[in-house]
Design a protein around this nucleic acid. Structure first.
Lengths: 344, 344
DNA sequence: ATATCGAATGCAAACGTTTGAAAAAATTTT
DNA sequence: AAAATTTTTTCAAACGTTTGCATTCGATAT
């Protein structure tokens, strides 16, 4: 009962006792078609709700106007901002975005990539999943390369992989965050780190570490605890930090979620923010401006990343022979709010 | 220079001096193919990275295994949870989700729907955009119906439209929220309402209104102010509420974002939550458990909605003649936290 | 009346794959 | 060695659309 066969050009041709070619030309306003014929056919097509089968066109032209966006999650502000940026540039050019969520799962990522290639996707924007990263897998990317489908890394990447990429300067952002805490007078800065192995985690950690070094502050391993980016994952680590004999007087969270979780624990202990403990997050998610206290954070221009990534893709497909991969690194910016503003 | 033509079955056939049929059968493990032939062909195919062209298959079988998900935004927790739910059920069945974000824009919604149909999408999950709703447009849905492509409403819907739908019981959720505030002793409950016209906004508003009625509390128009669901949009309205001669002693926000924005303004004024003012949100977004104070809210099972919507879709395509549209309304649940827990 | 021209339409191939039926090749049975 | 049988392969059509080239059909010019 379902799905009555869609009207095709052939159906219309039969109806008008003419050839499919004529119908096709009529519908596309080809000049060599009689005005009356054209009008009749177009009217009838509209009446019966004809809609051209893009699948057949894709096959004919080897163009699908579809792009894949493969990300570990769309639950956070950053990813959705990136997608919005991609969308802003690419939708007007007629591209459809096929958004694939891997849930940090390597097998799913692999399957999606394979599927995208099978569907003749014209380009892929990828932020690799955690599992993929952990295991160092990258064979599944080879087929993408082999097929010369443009592959653009966004956010999470393999540093030694030969493609274009658009990322945020996590290192200097983290550095600035910690430097801000230190200049304002905090002495013992802890770090709620992201999962090991991911570039974002490691770059931010490196920024943290190098900043302490710059100010000749010894790194205390017990002040560095892992989280998984989720707000819940900050709870126990923060408690552990506060229970130390010599607890930190500031915390740099790998992202806003984690920072907000930490704030909650700190406030529950009756400590003051920023009075007793200063907090800085990362991402500048919309909520960070409205927490209590509001959260000092590092802006992370997701929308811009999406737009830059789009540009990289467009460059690549328009390249005439002399194409070289490009790496865009956008600066991140310190946004000072209440959670770190101790009047010293 | 870009995109070396992908290897086709014909290429392989030429290489083995056999027909495309043989190659096709060999690759699909057809029993009527000689074991050696099969092995040779499969090996070679793997070697040259053959990947079957799903576009041609789609054309042949009139099956694309693609579903459209058209939503106004993916920036909020709820939408991403719904998508996750859809994904959970449909991905294992081989479906690809094509996620389209309309940004509340009618024209974009229309374009996406048309594109999805042209691409022979096998089903569409739709949460209509605000513009669409405001203007009462629905002609663009006619072509979907005409083509008998299953259309499932998620979240935002037209009440008098003949399709399946899976929604959350906004009305009773809102009712429970307000009743909770009243039973705990709050007398003047304000409502930060969502945009006019949207079912979600109106249902929640109705729940608010009817609950007040039940407790014989007069509705004060000045306690009802519109927002656009964003945290920022709650700031000015909340200030206006607090500036009233007789300000409210509780606020029911149309969602958690708005409630969090309101909390911020209230705390800035030096008022206590829940002591002076009680707050309830809606959505049970992950952050709501970790704000300070934590936010009483109404859970909204987005994941379940996605899974139910999937079920509705599957029912529809498997229906044998006697198919009737179904409306699923999932209950929402009051989650009591600090922001409303005044010890009376 | 025939050649010439222009306008309108049709033919056929192509895109990559699958599949029922027919054909060819290899094997077994008489 | 011929016939019967089985195994393996090929043929051809189909999905819906576009497009260069050929064809048809009037009309105009010779």
């Amino acid at each position: 009962m379902n799905s009555s066969r869609p009207v095709t050009i052939k159906d219309i041709a039969r109806r008008f006792r003419c050839s499919p070619s004529t119908v096709s030309r009529a519908l596309n306003d080809h000049p060599a078609i009689n005005e009356d014929t054209r009008k009749n056919i177009q009217e009838y097509a509209k009446e019966v709700g004809y809609q051209r089968n893009e699948v057949s066109l894709s096959l004919l032209n080897k163009k699908t106007a579809t792009l894949g966006v493969v990300v570990p999650t769309i639950g956070n502000y950053y990813e959705t901002a990136v997608i919005e940026g991609l969308h802003t540039v690419l939708q007007p050019l007629g591209y459809t975005l096929n958004i694939c969520v891997t849930n940090e799962n390597y097998l799913l990522e692999k399957e999606y990539l394979s599927k995208l290639l099978s569907n003749r996707t014209e380009g892929i924007f990828l932020s690799v999943s955690q599992e993929t990263y952990d295991a160092g897998y990258y064979e599944h990317l080879e087929s993408v390369i082999q097929r010369k489908t443009p592959l653009i890394f966004i956010d999470r990447e393999y540093e030694d992989f030969e493609t274009s990429r658009a990322t945020v300067d996590d290192y200097h952002g983290a550095f600035a965050a910690v430097e801000h805490l230190i200049t304002i007078g905090y002495k013992n800065v802890a770090h709620l780190k992201g999962p090991n192995g991911l570039t974002v985690s490691e770059q931010r950690f490196k920024g943290y570490r190098d900043c302490l070094k710059k100010y000749d502050i010894a790194i205390r391993e017990e002040l560095i605890i892992n989280t998984n980016f989720q707000v819940e994952s900050a709870i126990v680590p923060t408690k552990r930090l506060l229970d130390l004999d010599s607890p930190p007087d500031a915390i740099f969270g790998v992202n806003d979620q984690v920072a907000i979780g930490a704030m909650r624990v700190i406030l529950d202990r009756g400590l003051k923010i920023p009075g007793d403990i200063g907090i800085v997050g990362f991402d500048n998610s919309p909520i960070s401006a409205y927490t209590y206290p509001s959260l000092t954070t590092i802006s992370r221009p997701g929308r811009k990343i999406g737009m830059e990534a789009s540009r990289l893709f467009l460059n690549q497909i328009n390249a005439s022979g002399d194409f070289a991969h490009e790496s865009i690194v956008l600066p991140s910016e310190l946004i000072i709010r209440e959670s770190s503003l101790r009047i010293s």
